[in-house]
């Protein structure tokens, strides 16, 4: 298993190099002179030239890439003018907030999704099973920002149960309770779509597996139906469920951008949204890089989980 993790880890390196190359080139192909963007169009030619030299913009492109990589390794992603802070600092501050939201959402989606799917699979064709199908369809056909707005309307404005934006109360009493209250709506909004997909996948993979010969063996030995589903079918259905969860994590990252804007959640998504509207290229670059690397690492984690549930792969 360790060697599998190591081998799989090695394969990540070229991917991450590719990602840095892509974000680097992104800045190259965005029209407009970075010096213009940084200094504004009113700056003098001289000042621009100075900045160009300072940024290494006159060097050949591969030297620029090398500089970019060097800075990257030192944790320097450039300066964000929207926030008037180093990009790294902006991202690090906000990465935590985004992760908090994303992790909460994926946990909610996975746990509730697998549970709901399993529960439905225990009695295929029953009322509960059909009820689940309807809910799944409902969540899957509703855009997440719309769900967000509906939730704000119901819980925030109508019932006044939960706060509708921001991360914590501005007023002093910002305990954990306040954090949870602020998180509730964005987490549900972000998780809903994935939850539905995961539930559907869990249900259908369990039903696929349940026709296997080894399930018949377990039944023929008097194992109860609940144990069959939980201890025999679910572990064998997990590899495909985990693949879907992994894919959902990717969607979740992109979903976070939208959700954060709807709920003014101070995460990378909101920052990116602001960066795009002000053409803050270093911040866009940094944001994409961090999101892409996160995506790759998540897939790595998914692969390891996948191997854990599928003993045949461990040998490979």
């Amino acid at each position: 298993m360790l060697s599998f993790i190591f081998n799989r880890g090695l394969q990540i390196v070229p991917v991450i190099i590719g990602v840095t190359l892509a974000t680097f080139l992104l800045a190259q192909i965005i029209p407009g002179d970075p010096a213009d963007v940084l200094l504004g169009s009113m700056a003098s030619e001289e000042a621009r030239q100075q900045l160009r030299v300072a940024l290494g913009l006159n060097e050949p492109i591969y030297v620029q890439y090398a500089i970019y990589l060097k800075n990257l390794l030192q944790g320097d992603l450039g300066q964000s003018f929207t926030f008037a802070q180093p990009v790294t600092q902006v991202i690090v501050e906000r990465l935590f907030n985004t992760s908090l939201l994303a992790v909460a959402a994926i946990l909610l989606a996975s746990v509730a999704g697998v549970a709901a799917g399993t529960w439905a699979a225990l009695r295929p064709g029953s009322v509960r099973d059909q009820g689940l199908s309807v809910i799944v369809l409902f969540f899957n056909s509703m855009p997440s920002f719309w769900l967000g707005l509906v939730l704000i309307l119901i819980f925030g404005l109508h019932l006044r149960l939960l706060p509708i934006g921001g991360m914590q109360d501005a007023t002093g009493s910002s305990g954990i309770g306040s954090l949870v209250a602020h998180m509730a709506l964005p987490t549900i909004t972000l998780a809903a779509w994935s939850l539905a997909v995961i539930a559907r996948m869990t249900r259908s993979s369990i039903l696929d597996v349940i026709n296997s010969d080894y399930i018949r063996t377990a039944r023929s030995r008097g194992v109860s139906e609940v144990r069959i589903v939980l201890c025999h079918a679910l572990p064998n259905a997990m590899p495909s469920v985990i693949t879907v969860i992994g894919m959902q994590m990717g969607f979740l990252l992109s979903g976070a951008v939208l959700t954060e804007t709807v709920f003014s959640w101070p995460g990378i998504g909101l920052a990116m949204y602001q960066a795009i509207s002000t053409r803050d290229i270093p911040l866009i670059q940094g944001g994409i890089l961090v999101l892409a690397v996160a995506f790759v690492l998540i897939n790595f984690a998914v692969d390891i989980l996948y191997a854990y549930f599928n003993p045949k792969i461990k040998l490979g």
């Binding site: 080894y214 063996t217 023929s220 030995r221 008097g222 201890c231 572990p235 064998n236 599928n310 045949k312």
Partner: peptide
Amino acid sequence: PRQMRPVRGREIALISQDALTSLNPAM
């Protein structure tokens, strides 16, 4: 099924047709 469970395995046991796929691969 609940009434059948004590019969299966204890009274009547089955060696099912395909040995290669009749064991749980994840256990």
